[in-house]
Nucleic acid binder design. Structure first.
Lengths: 185, 185
DNA sequence: ATCAATGTGTTGGATATCCAACAGATTCAG
DNA sequence: CTGAATCTGTTGGATATCCAACACATTGAT
């Protein structure tokens, strides 16, 4: 229990389940995916599924979080400072992630997915803010992270709603200077 | 122990190990592949490796057997009679399998590989002979299987040595009528 | 030749996974 | 509606896998 997050069996099993889920998502709608389908594909027992996940919605949440986090980390941990470039690559990562979600799958779970994306954004913004601000006002940083995450997520929605008529970097770039004012330590 | 061959954990673990081994074989020479490499890639513990395989040569043997057997079964279990067509598809399967083996990998283990191929051929020939012969002279069928396996394997070697100048089916086809004489029940 | 580092193979106890069985929910044909 | 079939979640005991530690072999640098 204390080291359940690092036991190789746990990591391996979770990976197998998540990979199978993503695999199946490409073939079926979310509502038609059964837990037995997933465990069969993953070659693990159904009881083991419940050892790791509450239910299939819990899996959806964790799987998407992970995929998204991998995307974000890959882009952001390179220039790990919250400058214009970082904003742009985060925004592009989000839009790519949303493009990658087959609209056929997960229909009816847009709000769940939205929440997941926003939460992950919030986590990453908060981490980066803490890294470059020496202030002790932690609550302030948290609030900034909330605002930025809602803002960037909303921008991605609007960009799609407008028909993606301009490249994402062009869409977000003009707004960045206004955001950056309050960010520098 | 009694059902150790059907426990899903066993099947899954063996698959993971074999897949990792095949994966690594594409990148490194056989002699440079360590058991730690394999178990790391497969996400399983080193001790678990020894639970399933004696050593790395045992793995080589079983992995190749399995790959080969899958190839053979796929081709042969369709027209499951030992006629001209079956001979041809077996011969093609063998030559494809040998082409698939990167010569860079497994150098220095040609004789091991040869033995594995021959043994698998022998098994399959024997199965098919038993299926279509009602004779009780089991020893005779075993001997026929031995001869056919050595013969077909040898033919594949000679075909390669000759520079693969004709398609495999052309190479083997003229010889088949001579083999078929003693096979019919 | 020696020492350090790495690989092989083995073992006993801890734990994740499996199995079989169960009760209840949902679906769907007749 | 009724029953048959399938899915969801849960549980206790069996077993495969993990871990840490060990002895020994092999390799490579100094």
């Amino acid at each position: 229990m204390t080291q359940s997050k690092t036991d190789p069996r746990v990591l391996r099993t979770r990976k197998l389940i998540m990979d199978s889920f993503i695999e199946l998502s490409a073939k079926k709608e979310f509502k038609d995916i059964t837990i037995k389908d997933i465990t069969t594909e993953a070659m693990i027992n159904r009881a083991t599924f419940y050892y790791h996940f509450e239910d299939i919605y819990d899996l959806l949440e964790k799987a998407l979080s992970e995929v998204l986090l991998v995307n974000l980390n890959f882009d952001v941990y390179q220039n790990n400072e919250l400058n214009e470039e970082a904003f742009i690559s985060i925004f592009i990562a989000i839009t790519n992630f949303q493009k990658g979600l087959s609209t056929r799958c997960h229909r009816g779970y847009e709000d769940t997915i939205a929440r997941i994306i926003r939460e992950q954004l919030e986590i990453i913004f908060y981490k980066m803010l803490v890294k470059q601000n020496t202030t002790k006002d932690d609550e302030a940083l948290k609030t900034v992270a909330v605002i930025l995450s809602w803002g960037i997520y909303g921008a991605s929605i609007e960009w799609r709603r407008n028909g993606m008529t301009v490249p994402p970097e062009e869409f977000i770039k003009p707004a960045i200077p206004y955001l950056m004012n309050g960010i520098h330590s």
